[in-house]
Amino acid sequence: MLLDLPKPTELAVPAFVLLCFAEMFYGWKSGRARYEGKDTFTSLVMGLGSTISGALTASLFLVASYWVWDNFRLFNLGAAPWVFVLAFVLDDLAYYWIHRFGHRMRWMWAAHVIHHSSQHYNLSTALRQTWTGQFTPGFFFKLPLFIMGIEPAIVVFVAGINLIYQFWIHTEAIGRMPRWFEAVMNTPSHHRVHHATNPKYLDANYAGVFIIWDKLFGTYVPEDDAEPCRYGLVRDLGTFNPLRVAFHEWVGIFRDVWGARTWRDRALFLLAPPGWTPDGSRKTSDMIKAEWRARQQAERQAAE
C-alpha cells in the first residue's frame, strides 16, 4: 500500500498568487521590488506548463522510484516523523547536487536555464520553471534516498516542501535575515547571488533550503553591497515567447550535436558546461570569471 500524502505545491498555489500581488503592491509603493507585464506573464505560463508537464510524467517517476525502492532498498525506514526530517535534509542535499549539475552540465542546464531566463528577480521568477526536467539525469541523484529505504512518496512530499520554501527567497523586497538564519538557511540575499550574472557571482549558492551545503562544498559567495546583482543569463533571451523560452537550449544542443565533427564533441556538447565549444568560440562561466579576474588584476596594477 503506497503512502497517500498531500501535494504541498498544489495546496500552496493560491498563496503564491496572493504573495505575488502583495510583492507587486509593496514594490509599487516602495520601489523595492519591480515587475514587468510580459516578463510576469511568461514566468507564470512557464510555471503552469511545468505543473502540467510534471503531472503528465509523475506516474513514470513514481513507478521507477518504487521499483528501485522495492528491489534495492537496504532498510525499510517506515514513515515515522524522524524519517520525514531525515528525508527533508537528504533530499535537500540531493537537490544541491542536482542544481549544481544543472548549471555545470549542458544537458541538465537545458532544463534549468528556464528558471534563470528572466531579467527580473521577484516572486513570479520563482514560478518560472522548466517543462523538461524529466528528460535530464536529475532522477539519478535521488536514488540513494530510495536505496537507503526512504519511501518515494515521502521524498516527493518533502521535495514539495523544499520547493515551497524556495518561493519566498525570490525577492528583492527583503534585504537580509538575522545573522543566525543567514548562516544556516538559504535566504533572499544568498539566492539573489545565485541568480546574478555578474562574473563575481557566477556558479554560486546552489542551495535549496540549507546554505550549509554551499559552505561545505566550496560554492558559497556572500552578497556584496558594493556589487549589485544583475539578473538573467550571460546571454539573455530576446523573446518572451514561452515556447522559445522552454525549448531554446534543447534546440541549441540539437544544432550543436548535429553539426559536431566527432563523437567526443557530440558527447561534450551534452556533458560539458554550458558555453563549451571545441574551438572556444563561446564562453563558459569559468572563462567569463577568468576574464573578469584578469580585468580586475589589470585595474589594480594600473591603480598602483
Binding site: 515587475y35 510576469t40 506573464f41 505560463v45 503552469l48
Partner: peptide
C-alpha cells in the same frame, strides 16, 4: 489537472500580468 483549475490558473496569470503592466509601465 482539472479544467476548472486550468481556467482559474489562466485567469490568475492574466490578472497578475495586467496588474504588473499597470503598476510598472515601461516608459
Amino acid at each position: 489537472m482539472d479544467p476548472i483549475q486550468l481556467i482559474g490558473s489562466f485567469v490568475a496569470i492574466a490578472l497578475l500580468a495586467l496588474v504588473a503592466r499597470w503598476m510598472f509601465p515601461n516608459k
